[in-house]
């Protein structure tokens, strides 16, 4: 007994070291480009192209940030992006949960067909869809409004949300929601009181993905709006790429400013990842 405990302790130390090395390497891979972006955003344009490159800025400047933060037009891009992304997340999650529940727990005629259609919708490249879709949006009188973007992103995210929610619900034992029904609860009660809380990590991850799609999309955001007051951050960044020169530091700064609240939001929601299913609930 004492022997196994000691070997386990030693192997745990080894595991711990391995883990830290792995995580650090991964963090360099994931984080270095972002760090480079941050550093570029506080360098003047010329220093960005200096060779040999400087890591810490020789000339430190926050002018890229002040340029953005003092322009109400540019701040509007951020507001628009957040408004669109939040609306898309809420609506998509609702639709995804309802449909995912149906697909996971019930069999009904044409289930395969629904599945196929849901997947196929996103199998046509957006580039070819652009013009017909654009025509449709004009016809629906949605052109140059944020609603056009919200609906568009929902078209892209709902199929995904349905598939993933079906997947997450499938990993939850059916006995759990059947217990509610045995006690006389309705299907809806089983969904909202048992399945949704249990699948919370999944819901958060679907929400995160949905947010990123809406947050980062450029092609349709550019095409379906035209007023400056309806532009989103990706379009705003592209507007800094001129015919003759790019405003490198300001592009980087806009990107940094855009991602900060997203990261804070992620930090805020990520506890949901570790507070999922409990051992007790499964035994029940």
């Amino acid at each position: 007994m004492a022997v196994t405990a000691r070997t386990r302790g030693r192997s745990q130390v080894g595991q711990r070291i391995g883990l830290w090395i792995g995580l650090t390497l991964g963090a360099v891979f994931a984080g270095f480009p972002a760090l480079w972006m941050l550093l570029s955003s506080i360098k003047p344009n010329t220093e960005i192209f200096q060779f040999p490159p400087t890591f810490l800025p020789e000339t430190f400047t926050l002018s890229a940030y002040t340029d953005i933060l003092t322009s109400s037009e540019k701040l509007r891009f951020f507001l628009n992006s957040y408004a669109v992304a939040s609306a898309v997340v809420l609506l998509t999650l609702f639709a995804g949960i309802m449909a995912g529940y149906a697909l996971s727990r019930f069999t009904f005629p044409l289930k395969s067909l629904v599945n196929t259609v849901v997947i196929s919708v996103q199998a046509v490249p957006p580039i070819t869809l652009l013009i017909p879709y654009f025509g449709l949006v004009v016809w629906l009188k949605l052109y140059d409004s944020l609603w056009a973007l919200i609906l568009t992103y929902m078209v892209a995210t709902i199929p995904y949300a349905i598939l993933m929610m079906t997947g997450y619900f499938n990993t939850i034992p059916k006995e759990l929601d059947e217990a509610v029904k045995v006690d006389g609860g309705s299907s809806m009660r089983a969904l909202w009181q048992v399945l949704v809380p249990t699948a919370r990590p999944g819901i958060v991850s679907v929400g995160a993905y949905t947010f990123m799609v809406a947050w980062n999309e450029f092609l349709f955001a550019l095409t379906l709006t035209q007023s400056r007051s309806n532009r989103t951050v990706p379009v705003g960044i592209q507007l800094l790429m001129g015919e003759h020169s790019f405003k490198w530091s300001e592009m980087m700064a806009m990107s940094v400013l855009g991602c900060l609240p997203v990261l804070v939001l992620f930090l805020f929601f990520q506890r949901q990842f570790v507070s999922g299913i409990t051992a007790g609930a499964v035994k029940a």
């Binding site: 013009i131 654009f134 025509g135 004009v138 095409t223 007023s227 400056r228 790429m241």
Partner: peptide, 22 residues
């Protein structure tokens, strides 16, 4: 009403806009 578009997307946008009458 001034509408600013990114230079690199000018031609694509105009083609799409012309196709939809906007």
């Amino acid at each position: 009403n001034l509408i600013s578009n990114p230079y690199s997307a000018t031609v694509d946008l105009q083609t799409s806009a012309a196709a939809t009458g906007t």
